[in-house]
Write a protein that binds this DNA or RNA. Structure first.
Lengths: 190, 190
DNA sequence: GTAACTTACTTCAAATTTTGAAGTAAAATT
DNA sequence: AATTTTACTTCAAAATTTGAAGTAAGTTAC
């Protein structure tokens, strides 16, 4: 609707990697000297959003099964994501909120569970006693490290060569752009 | 961990688009004739997953606010995504499941709400009476169309030129690859 | 110095979303 | 005709997210 056929001599690929054309409302092709897109599918806003939703679901269930394999019962995928977001630095709740765009009460809730499970330590900051400083405990680091370990196999499958790496990076940066655009829109209205 | 420095003469960019290097555990740079990545940040599995989680959250809240603007109270973002997934074709619940990798009982639940709200019609298939055929009602199409309309502004911001389009497409296809890899892994184990 | 305001979080209760076990009925298979 | 499989639905419970209200520490303006 927004982008119309940009070039003459349009060719339509009927199938891309398992998806049939029905999944893409708008398809157009371009023939330029570019290496990357042989065909250009014009991807809309909502298609990306739906894809992201699906992929997110997939990942959550994968993470759940990794956790099960590790025999961990008191940490769900959402909490595991919080642990991974904390990583190996010490930070405040506020910084953690920024990292994941969580809602405050939500993080509080997760941190409570993770604290109870012994995965994180919380120390009141010296300078500002309102601010709780968070860090992983030994146990928390162990879990993250196990998860990262298990994740290594996926990294190897996903990043087979330079081309893959490039695409992963473009995907990452494009998602970051989506994040900014959608986030600003929500705050300031487009 | 997986990808080590691939080339000599490594240069590290300390900041990318608002993110500081601390967000990326592994950074390496390459100097090749490629146009796209001046620097290559090696993006891992989990970083992509965290990004996807964040972006998903952003989008959901944006969608929620669009729905509020439209004065719609009986459809949440999740249900709206189902409506958008249905689109303008008539399909069975099974096909819808595939489209979003939903869990059966989940879709059933949403479809019930959407049916009650008058957004979809369900007709038992003639050939196979187990299979319910789903399609949007006038009201459902209206809502989707309003949403797509509102979405147009985002498409214009996101896809400013050919380069943007290419990146959006690469992001889309890369996400699809993630979907497949993570999905297969969940079923068959890496 | 103290009253008012802001910041940084926590708590709780409710809403939403997801999950899984069990059920139903039609179709396919044996 | 009996059995199994498919295509869904229902229900109850669990997980996650949200928002309103609260607390306590810090800041600012008299």
């Amino acid at each position: 609707m927004i982008q119309k056929l940009l070039h003459e001599g349009v060719e339509v690929e009927t199938s891309i990697d398992g998806y049939d054309a029905g999944d893409f409302p708008e398809i157009t092709a371009e023939k330029q000297g570019h290496r990357h897109p042989v065909h250009t599918v014009v991807v809309t806003h909502f298609e990306l959003a739906r894809m992201i939703e699906r992929v997110n679901r997939r990942f959550a269930s994968l993470l759940r099964s990794e956790l099960t394999k590790l025999g961990i019962e008191d940490v769900g995928p959402a909490q595991a994501m919080v642990l991974l977001a904390i990583g190996d630095v010490e930070l405040s709740v506020g910084e953690l909120l920024d990292r994941g765009h969580y809602i405050g009460s939500n993080i509080s809730y997760y941190l409570k569970q993770l604290g109870d499970g012994g995965y994180i330590d919380r120390v009141a900051s010296q300078r500002d006693k309102r601010s709780a400083r968070i860090r992983l405990t030994e146990k928390g680091e162990q879990l993250c490290s196990n998860l990262r370990n298990a994740g290594g196999a996926y990294n190897r499958v996903l990043a087979r060569d330079d081309d893959d790496l490039r695409n992963l990076e473009i995907a990452f940066q494009t998602l970051h752009r989506l994040e900014l655009v959608w986030g600003n829109a929500a705050r300031y209205g487009i």
